[in-house]
Computed example of a mutant assay.
Amino acid sequence: MARTTDVTPAALILAGSRPGAPDPLADYAGVAHKALIELDGKTLLARVTAALRRAGIDRIAVSADHPAVVVEALRLSLQVIAPAAGPSGSVAAGLSALGAPLLVTTADHALLRPEWVTRFVADVPAGTDAAVLLARRDVVEAAAPATRRTWLRFADGHWSGCNLFLLATPAAGEAIGLWSQVEADRKRPWRIVRRLGPGLLLRYLLGRLTLGAALRHLGARAGIHAAAVASPYGLAAIDVDKPADLDLVRTLVTR
């Protein structure tokens, strides 16, 4: 497909701290923050940064406020942007600071590879304002049979997010407000579809709504063109949210 932009995007790595109780994953790994978990001698933040740089991205910032993560970010020569309330607020701050096109990922994307990034950006359809990378269940389970995911169930398959987003144009900022509304329901797609009206909700409940159609309608509600991009790389859906994820990723890295 035609690229939506020929400009190399900047990148934002989300590595904020959740308020309240300590992160059980960081406790499990014995570190101050999960971005500092080490795999193969590198912190997760360093691994993600290296993958982005090998994908040709030079302008990279991290949204972080934990002192130890900030120190690691500065060691990696990353720009540090103070996080806002929730991931959507942090993305808005990143877009304001870095501009579009902006690639967004997370510090816990432990297996991130440069070819996933370059393939995603190349596959975003021309004219798209905002895109999200997802992988079908069969692709994910073929690559990592032991993984346990929460699947987005649509007529064209079951999907898992890959923690890669492209805000291709400045207009993508219009979708951030909608993003904040659906954050709490990201693992319950019927609640997200419900926002689009009873007709689409009925199509979803009857198993007739595709993921692409849902995203197009969500984008239209925000006044932008939004698209889903299917990843051929099943491991792109594997992040590190809980101890079982970390154990799996350690096994995959060892292999």
Score class of each variant (00 low, 15 high):
residue 186 R to N: 12
residue 166 L to N: 05
residue 69 V to P: 01
residue 151 W to R: 13
residue 48 V to T: 06
residue 204 Y to P: 05
residue 223 G to W: 15
residue 195 R to Q: 07
residue 225 H to P: 04
residue 14 L to S: 11
residue 90 S to L: 11
residue 127 G to N: 09
residue 46 A to F: 06
residue 48 V to H: 03
residue 185 D to I: 03
residue 32 A to G: 03
residue 95 L to C: 07
residue 222 A to Y: 09
residue 186 R to A: 11
residue 248 L to F: 06
residue 36 L to Y: 08
residue 171 A to T: 12
residue 132 V to S: 13
residue 25 L to R: 03
residue 222 A to R: 06
residue 186 R to M: 10
residue 86 G to P: 06
residue 13 I to R: 00
residue 33 H to I: 03
residue 182 V to T: 05
residue 31 V to C: 12
residue 33 H to V: 02
residue 181 Q to T: 03
residue 222 A to E: 10
residue 209 L to S: 13
residue 40 D to Y: 08
residue 229 V to C: 04
residue 46 A to W: 07
residue 217 H to Q: 15
residue 173 G to L: 08
residue 108 D to I: 00
residue 6 D to W: 09
residue 188 R to Y: 03
residue 2 A to Y: 01
residue 244 A to F: 13
residue 193 V to D: 15
residue 180 S to D: 05
residue 64 A to V: 01
residue 240 V to I: 05
residue 204 Y to Q: 14
residue 130 A to D: 04
residue 139 V to T: 10
residue 97 A to N: 07
residue 14 L to N: 13
residue 215 L to S: 08
residue 141 E to Q: 12
residue 106 T to G: 06
residue 241 D to R: 07
residue 22 P to R: 03
residue 232 P to E: 10
residue 119 R to P: 05
residue 106 T to V: 09
residue 23 D to A: 12
residue 89 G to A: 11
residue 138 D to H: 11
residue 231 S to R: 01
residue 69 V to N: 11
residue 21 A to D: 13
residue 141 E to H: 08
residue 109 H to Q: 09
residue 171 A to Q: 14
residue 192 I to L: 09
residue 7 V to F: 03
residue 129 D to T: 05
residue 102 L to I: 06
residue 13 I to D: 00
residue 104 V to R: 04
residue 102 L to S: 08
residue 122 A to S: 12
residue 189 P to F: 11
residue 217 H to F: 15
residue 97 A to P: 04
residue 81 I to A: 08
residue 23 D to M: 10
residue 112 L to F: 00
residue 6 D to N: 13
residue 180 S to I: 00
residue 204 Y to S: 11
residue 221 R to W: 11
residue 65 D to Q: 12
residue 245 D to Y: 02
residue 200 L to A: 02
residue 177 G to Q: 03
residue 120 F to V: 07
residue 208 R to V: 04
residue 235 L to D: 06
residue 78 L to R: 05
residue 212 G to P: 02
residue 49 T to Q: 15
residue 209 L to K: 12
residue 168 A to Q: 01
residue 160 S to M: 11
residue 135 A to R: 15
residue 239 D to L: 03
residue 68 A to V: 00
residue 79 Q to H: 08
residue 224 I to L: 04
residue 196 L to I: 02
